[in-house]
């Protein structure tokens, strides 16, 4: 178990500071954009204000750069880390699983940070907005009325929680698949496809499920495809053929 934890530690050491640095920048950007929008349009409701402030776009960029940082460790760009991975006491398959688990944890961390930031922005709104726009349920209602806020914290919409879980699962697997493929000289196209799909379906209005089941299956399909490809590649390696 310690060997597996050391691999997770390896990915953590090479990415965590960058991820946290990026997150601080993104949070600061969201706060600045939101306060600026509130200053310019003091009479807007919080849902419109969130939209006008472009906070969702900052989150999209945050998610993209987050993904970029997560796919780098384990790639053979400037050194051949594959030579080390193949001499470890655990299989490269186990390394893949460790990286996928770590990446999933990072995406959960990203989501939590965005939820806390969004909640903070809502609280800020209740302090700065005119009294006639506020009620005792302003923040609670905002998470139902704003598509963005509802998408990151779906409250009682169980289906959305399920989709979120699948998105995190598939992103974890796909971002771990990218360096795995890279070490074999291939480009992890499924990682790009999965990122686009997750970004595409993430922000949706309450109760909208038109394309969501399809997207869900697509995401899962890509995730499974990645796993299938990985198993196939690893079998080749296990039998002595590689590189």
């Amino acid at each position: 178990m310690k060997k597996h934890l050391s691999v997770i530690g390896l990915f953590c050491r090479t990415t965590l500071y960058r991820l946290l640095g990026l997150s601080v920048l993104a949070i600061v950007a969201e706060v600045i954009l939101f306060t600026q929008a509130l200053k310019n349009n003091p009479d807007l409701g919080i849902e419109l204000l969130i939209e006008n402030s472009r906070v969702p776009f900052v989150f999209a960029a945050w998610f993209l750069l987050f993904t970029f940082i997560l796919v780098l460790p384990g790639c053979d760009f400037k050194s051949r880390s594959v030579y080390t991975f193949r001499r470890l006491r655990i299989s490269e398959r186990a390394v893949f699983v460790c990286q996928a688990i770590y990446n999933m944890a990072c995406y959960i961390m990203l989501l939590c940070m965005q939820i806390v930031t969004a909640y903070g922005l809502c609280v800020l709104y209740t302090h700065l907005a005119p009294a006639e726009l506020l009620s005792g349920h302003t923040v609670f209602l905002a998470f139902y009325r704003s598509d963005f806020l509802h998408s990151i914290l779906p409250l009682q919409e169980g289906m959305r929680w399920g989709l979120m879980a699948i998105a995190i699962l598939s992103m974890g697997i796909c971002t771990a698949n990218f360096p795995f493929m890279n070490r074999r000289g291939s480009f992890g196209m499924t990682t790009v496809a999965n990122t686009v799909i997750v970004m595409g379906f993430y922000v949706r209005e309450l109760g909208y499920f038109g394309l969501l089941p399809l997207v869900t299956f697509l995401t899962m399909g890509i995730a499974l495809f990645n796993v299938f490809t990985w198993e196939e590649e690893d079998e080749v390696y296990e039998n002595g053929a590689a590189i």
């Binding site: 050391s6 050491r13 460790p73």
Partner: peptide
């Protein structure tokens, strides 16, 4: 194995490599 292609992890420090290698 030491190779001119290098097999280390570029973003990891020497101390980090030591800790990692000690586990494996």
């Amino acid at each position: 194995f030491a190779t001119s292609e290098h097999s280390f992890f570029g973003n990891l420090s020497a101390a980090g490599h030591r800790d990692f290698y000690k586990e494996h």
